[in-house]
Design a protein around this nucleic acid. Structure first.
Lengths: 354, 354
DNA sequence: ACGGATGATGAGAGCGCTCTCACCCGTACC
DNA sequence: GGTACGGGTGAGAGCGCTCTCATCATCCGT
């Protein structure tokens, strides 16, 4: 031999076995193997066994691309969070929600695909990704007003469930969005009423970013409880739903209204920041200033003193979102009509900070 | 008309436009449209323009399943974390690493797919998922000894990069794993030496779970610095890399060795727990007990007092992992030979707790 | 014993895309 | 004027799978 053959373009060794190969080995047709690999009804036991063995011996795993090309199903759903990971991974709220979602999805053998919105231009990228049919549906939460994602999902008819009532483009147009939310307004009302009951009169509020419906609703609940449509603006500060934001907002409030005797903080994480500021400025909690948080997550229990807060079952909300989406996907196109948004209750949990 | 036709099986209205449709509209062949949509070389400007317009008008988005069926590329990589989400979302370490990874991947227009290992049986599910060709490669971290995932990835020849030196199945066999790690042993040595320099003599250690190489390496560094192969076992406790674990481990140490005057805690999160215990038991930091952490993440800066700790650039490590994997994927099959594990340096950051 | 259920199996047509190869036509060269 | 060349374009063969139908046993009732 002088020169060996040029290397073949096809390298069978790095090719995973296909249905065809399994069929050949088991001495049946592709169709039969497919039947066994999937549902597996209508195949004689002896044949099924032979196919199973062939699958094992060859280490056959179905090619997902080929499969979803014909079924138009991918077995995956996207979770889109309208925040940069920095926030997502520092606020336990997201972890909890994601946990509920992931539990429910993996029980249904559905993959979870996590997407973060970092920059403005990420919207386009994510929109393209969703439109490309990588996923069967989407779960979106922590979106901010004017986010183009809902409209994009709508346009490419991607089944979507929102966490928190979304800022919906064509407000009352036919296709109503599916979402899971807590009764934020009522939760806030409970918190502020509790402070009033405790005899507090100068009650401040640290809000979330007001381009989110949840933050807005909680602020509305604060107004409801106070019974004033237009409360003293010196008592309102935006803490952006972060610990540092809460820290700074508290400082601003103390500067603008040194006489405040209570503060309703719209998330536990912000409350932990607010407590730091209060401690630093020598105000006792709850002696000088009573504090109520929102969420009832780790920061509330760990806080010093432990935080009175409004409990919402975040994990359950995640589960509900996933369940809603799965139903939406599983049912026929019009069976979806029965599905409706879910609003869960909020409940005050009294601890030592108020 | 008496009865309308039975509804057609095909519903063209819910079908997204295909290459074929774009080709027809632009008056060219599928091949040409494909050329424009992808690289786009070798097409006359006029034609390219016409195709572009057709794409826009139809709102065409390539079908990813069809594409990856033929290209054998998915444009996505999996990130597998060997911990339940509970931990992932409460330890800022993961968030940081993920952030580095996600930055690098999205710059390369590659999707990130997050998978958690919750239960024992998740391994099988994840293995199947990886084998099914949903992703082009994987990034795995926080794996524990004896985890079958590396072997699975190896078997289906999935390009993989590990975060932290993995517990490698065939130790010295040919295919060496690709990983990114910090010099944990040296970092620990620095921390403990620093405590010795400060005159401490009874130095305890709170370790991570000892089935992880990073925890093991740090414990080795502790031994190195003390210069004893077999330190007093009363000075060693496992904190499991969680805040509560650190809290409990500190309590155990104080009970077993009340005379300890310093503790090297192998993660900031555990250190925050340890500080709680010390405070609760009335030990002053650093007066009575000096504390050094590891990681230099938020808990270190926020701690009271601010924590002396060992800094590792976690985000950068994430970025390095992603970059390594992308190179591995981009390069030809044998060009991969040049790629080697990366070990970054650790550096002590002195603050007020020591 | 025979027509008609019934149930297991195989043949084959796509799903939407990429990519090779052949083709066409215009330009350059002898 | 013929040959060679090369860039732009189209035809068509798959990628690996699912699913509809046709086919063929098998078994029942009369």
């Amino acid at each position: 031999m002088t020169t060996s053959e040029p290397s073949r373009p096809r390298r069978p060794h790095d090719r995973r076995p296909t249905l065809e190969a399994v069929a050949a080995r088991a001495g049946v047709s592709r169709a039969t193997v497919s039947r066994v690999v999937n549902g597996g009804t209508g195949v004689r036991d002896a044949v099924r066994e032979r196919v199973r063995r062939a699958v094992d011996e060859l280490g056959y795993v179905p090619n997902s691309a080929a499969r979803s090309l014909v079924t138009r199903r991918t077995g995956a759903v996207a979770v889109v969070i309208g925040e940069p990971e920095t926030r997502v991974f520092s606020d336990p709220f997201f972890g909890r929600q994601l946990r509920g979602i992931s539990r429910e999805l993996s029980a249904a053998d559905t993959q979870l695909l996590l997407l973060f919105v970092q920059h403005r231009d990420d919207h386009a990228r994510i929109g393209r990704y969703l439109a490309a049919g990588h996923v069967d549906g989407a779960l979106m939460f922590s979106l901010h007003d004017g986010d183009p994602l809902p409209a994009m999902a709508e346009r490419c008819q991607l089944p979507t469930v929102y966490g928190g009532r979304p800022d919906w483009p064509g407000a009352d147009r036919a296709p109503r969005p599916l979402f899971v939310d807590t009764d934020n307004r009522d939760g806030a009302r409970q918190a502020v009423r509790h402070l009033l009951d405790r005899g507090r009169r100068r009650i401040a509020v640290i809000t979330g970013p007001l381009d989110q419906t949840s933050a807005l609703d909680r602020l509305d609940g604060y107004r409801d409880a106070l019974g004033v449509a237009d409360p003293d603006p010196r008592l309102i500060a935006d803490g952006g739903f972060t610990a540092e934001g809460g820290e700074r907002a508290m400082a601003r409030l103390l500067a603008a209204a040194p006489d405040l005797d209570a503060v309703f903080v719209c998330s536990d994480l912000m409350a932990s920041g607010a407590l730091r500021t209060l401690r630093a400025q020598g105000r006792r909690v709850p002696g000088d200033v009573a504090v109520v948080g929102y969420d009832d997550l780790e920061p509330a229990a760990w806080a010093d003193p432990p935080l009175t807060t409004v409990r919402q079952d975040v994990e359950e909300m995640g589960r509900l979102m996933a369940r809603l989406l799965l139903r939406r996907l599983g049912a026929g196109p019009e069976a979806g009509e029965e599905l409706a948004p879910v609003i869960t209750a909020a409940r005050l949990v009294v601890r030592e900070s108020s």
